[in-house]
Amino acid sequence: MDTQRCPLCGKANRCSIAAGRSDEPCWCFGAQIDPAALERLTPEQRDMACLCPACAGAVDAAQRTERD
Rank of each mutant, 00 (worst) to 15 (best):
D47E: 14
P53L: 07
G57Y: 12
A62M: 10
A18K: 06
Q4C: 07
R67A: 09
Q32Y: 03
C26I: 01
N13E: 02
R21H: 15
L38I: 07
C6I: 04
Q45N: 09
E24V: 14
D68S: 12
D47M: 04
W27E: 00
K11M: 08
I33H: 05
Q45L: 04
D2C: 00
R40V: 02
L38M: 14
R21G: 13
W27H: 03
L41F: 09
L38D: 05
I33Q: 01
Q63I: 15
R67Y: 04
A31F: 03
L8V: 04
R5F: 00
R21T: 15
N13R: 09
R67F: 09
A19H: 15
G20M: 06
L8Y: 05
G10H: 07
A37R: 06
Q63A: 12
A54E: 11
R40M: 07
D60P: 05
G57Q: 06
R21M: 14
G10N: 04
A36M: 10
A58H: 06
T65N: 11
G30T: 12
R40I: 02
L38Q: 12
E24Q: 14
T3A: 08
C15R: 06
P7V: 06
R21C: 13
D60K: 15
L8W: 01
P7W: 07
M1V: 08
Q4T: 14
S22P: 01
F29A: 11
K11C: 08
A54P: 00
L8M: 08
A12E: 13
A31S: 04
P7T: 09
A62P: 00
E24A: 14
M48Q: 14
R46C: 02
E66T: 08
C26S: 11
P7N: 03
R5M: 06
A61E: 06
G30M: 03
Q45E: 14
Q63G: 08
V59F: 11
A56H: 12
R64Q: 11
G10V: 06
P43V: 11
L51K: 04
C52I: 08
P43Q: 02
Q45M: 05
D23H: 14
P7I: 06
M48P: 00
A61F: 06
P53N: 05
A61Y: 10
N13P: 13
T3N: 08
D34E: 07
P7C: 03
E44Y: 00
G10M: 08
A18E: 13
D68Q: 10
A61D: 12
T42L: 09
G20T: 08
R40W: 01
C9Y: 03
G10L: 04
C9I: 07
P7K: 02
Q32D: 12
A58G: 07
A49Q: 09
V59M: 13
K11W: 00
L41G: 03
V59Q: 15
T65V: 08
R14P: 01
D47S: 14
E44I: 00
C28I: 05
L38Y: 02
S16L: 14
C15S: 15
V59I: 13
C6G: 06
R40F: 05
R5I: 00
Q63T: 13
A58E: 03
A18D: 10
Q63D: 14
I17P: 00
P35N: 05
A36R: 15
C28G: 02
Q4A: 10
P25C: 04
